[in-house]
């Protein structure tokens, strides 16, 4: 999934679930949109949906520092890349072991 595709999904999610239309990509979500704990959890659940896998404890801890939508996108892209790299490594080791 490209960054643009992730961005479209996240913006649609913000519009539908948080009722935030066209947010600034660098808006502080707490300051500008009153983002709270429940919103943060809801967003993380959506990120798990997008990635189709659960977040680890460490990944959730990293999410605590997120303030803006650009940071949300960076976070998802980095997790998606890490998962792809992990899948490739698994496949390579499976081929080797044959």
């Amino acid at each position: 999934m490209t960054r643009a595709e992730i961005e479209a999904k996240i913006l649609e999610f913000f519009r539908k679930e948080f009722e935030i239309d066209n947010p600034g990509m660098d808006d502080d979500l707490r300051e500008a949109h009153g983002f709270d704990s429940i919103d943060a959890i809801e967003l993380l659940l959506e990120i798990e949906n997008i990635l189709d896998s659960e977040l680890t404890h460490e990944e959730k801890k990293r999410a605590m520092d997120i303030r803006t939508i650009n940071q949300v996108l960076d976070y998802i892209v980095s997790l998606a890349e890490a998962r792809q790299a992990g899948n490739r490594a698994d496949q390579a080791s499976a081929v080797k072991s044959r």
């Binding site: 979500l29 707490r30 983002f35 709270d36 704990s37 429940i38 919103d39 943060a40 959890i41 809801e42 993380l44 659940l45 404890h57 959730k60 605590m64």
Partner: peptide
């Protein structure tokens, strides 16, 4: 727990899930 600073915990996420 009610968290006013926008933070959250693993336990809270599991509860909501």
């Amino acid at each position: 727990p009610s968290l006013t600073n926008g933070g959250f915990s693993d336990a809270m996420m599991t509860q909501i899930k």
